[in-house]
Structures are given as structure tokens and as C-alpha cells.
Nucleic acid binder design. Sequence first.
DNA 1: ATGTTGATGCAAAATCATTGCATCAAATGA
DNA 2: TCATTTGATGCAATGATTTTGCATCAACAT
Lengths: 158, 158
Amino acid sequence: MRMNKIDRFDSKILQALQRDARLTLGALAETVNLSPSQCSRRIARLEKESVIEGYALRLNPEALGLKVTAFVFLSVDKGRMASPREAVAALLARDEVIDCHTVTGSHDFILRVVVEDLAALSRFLSTTISPMPGIRDIATQVAMDTLKTNGPLKVESG
Amino acid sequence: MRMNKIDRFDSKILQALQRDARLTLGALAETVNLSPSQCSRRIARLEKESVIEGYALRLNPEALGLKVTAFVFLSVDKGRMASPREAVAALLARDEVIDCHTVTGSHDFILRVVVEDLAALSRFLSTTISPMPGIRDIATQVAMDTLKTNGPLKVESG
DNA sequence: ATGTTGATGCAAAATCATTGCATCAAATGA
DNA sequence: TCATTTGATGCAATGATTTTGCATCAACAT
């Protein structure tokens, strides 16, 4: 992962596309003061360099019937930390699991989970998480309000 | 937020676009077995109904020099919970803050924070979080590995 | 039966993205 | 100093994609 080849044009392009990834090159060109063709070439370059990894939909979970977001904190037995590859892979494959990180501190994993309702959360915890080998502790915090999700990243030209 | 007007075509469209929001209507039409024009109209409808809220970039944070993800847990004085509107708004406006939820349990807020390095995290905590009025407790867990981010939501036709 | 509504595909029209090409500027080397 | 190379740029032509008018069809209601 090489250092910033991101100049101020790239930076402006990325900022604009984070707001709306479907801006036309014409509109983008206006906001960054560059021609559409050059915007196109710069975007292609940012994709090739994997600065841009892809394009995603911003969906409204509630409109899909997904009314509950929760954070799940897992601790696992240290002795069994070498092998849970499969178990983790299975966990990541579940579409209730939106994010999964390993973290410092008293727990080992933090999951962000999105499900239909509390019953679905309970079901997920008891049938998917609990049976995982080596699980020592599960703690759950249910989100009451989502004040911000997936905010734009800071992009600096440097 | 009305109930599922999402039929199996919508569902397939949303699943495909979650994988790649820049599929052409032609390609999309093939995978969902519908004409491009009808896909276009359905997408327009899903946007109008705010099922699709927008289009986002999937960026590689490391490529932007953002090497540290952390979860920050905040507790605030209950007595001062009525007024921190401004403080919260200021917090949400910071671009280190990617997610912010209020949660049940021992803390009040969970933040997901993405910054350049640990020094930047420290700076953020001491200059942005600590001075917030009514903060009673701050706990931080640093992510060591990101196993999954922003996974696709489950979309069901019902 | 008849009319209404909404979904659909096709094809035309409009919009948009990409690319070849010429130009320019900055950096490099003689 | 001057020539040369390299990379970025805009323009215009080309090619691809999206949108829309229109006719058809099926389901449902009158």
C-alpha cells in the first residue's frame, strides 16, 4: 500500500463521490474544475490502485424490515484461538453480520449485527454465536438510535 | 415506513446492486431476468420510496493513510442528557466519526472512529471527546483486524 | 362483458462514458 | 541552453448506457 499519490484533484473527486457515487462525469467535472475526460481517467486510476474498492448501495434498513442494530462482543478461549478459522469464516458469511473486527481489550471480537427484530437477534445469538467452539463470553448492546452510519472518510491530498 | 412492497425482482436487484452498484442495466437485467428498461423503472421506484437512499464509494482506508479503526464508548451524566444536542451535532460532524449509535447497557454512545494512527486517535479523544460537556466515562477499543466491513444487508421479498 | 390499473418489452431518443489525438508543462539529460 | 521525454490535459468523435413513449398483456374491479 504505497503512500499518498492523492493530489488535490483526486481528493476533491473522492469527496464528491463519497457524497454521491453516481454523479455524472460532467457534474463531477464542474465541482472539481477539471474536464470530464480527465475525471474519468483519474477515477480509473484510483480504481486500479484500489483506493476505490467498489461501489455500494446505501440502503434504508427499516424499509427492508431490519429494525434492530446491535453490537455483539465476543471473548474466546485463548487456547482455541489458533483454529477457529472455519468458525470465523462461517460467522462472516452470515448476512446478519455487517461488520466484524478483532479488538484490543477485554473482548476479542466486535460484531455489528442488523436483524429484523429482537426475536431475530435472540435467535442469532443462541443458534449462531453460542454454538461456536471456544466461545467464552458474549455481551450484547442494542442500538436505540443510529445517529450516523457509514460517514465519509477524511480524504487529504498529501 | 410502509411494509414490504419488495417482490422477488426487487430483492434480486438490490442483492445484485449491493455487490456492485455500478452494474449496467443490461448486466443487471440478465442476472434478474427482466428487461433493462424495467430494471431502470424499478430502481427509480426504490429510490423514490427511499429503500435506496443513495450510492456510496467503497474506499480503502489504508490507501488514504487511515490506518486505525477504534470503537469509543461514552457515558454521559444523566442530568445533562437533555441538552447535549449541540455537542452531539458537533461530534457527528467530525469526519473521524464514521458511525454513532446510542445503545442500551452501561454506556450511552458507541462510536466507530477511523483515523490516521494512534497519535491521531489520542488527539481526537483528548481534544474532541474529553471536552464535551457531561462526559462521565470514555472507553476505547482499537481494532486490530477488520474481518468484514459494511456487509450487504439481507433483502427478502415479502 | 367492459373498463381500469399496473407491469412489461421494444425501440427510439437522450444522456453519458471512453478514447484517440494534439497540445502543453515540467522534468531530465546532453 | 536546448532538446527530449514523460505525464497531464482538453476536445471531439465514438461507443455504450439510460430513459421514455408506446403498444401489449394480465389481473382485477365494475
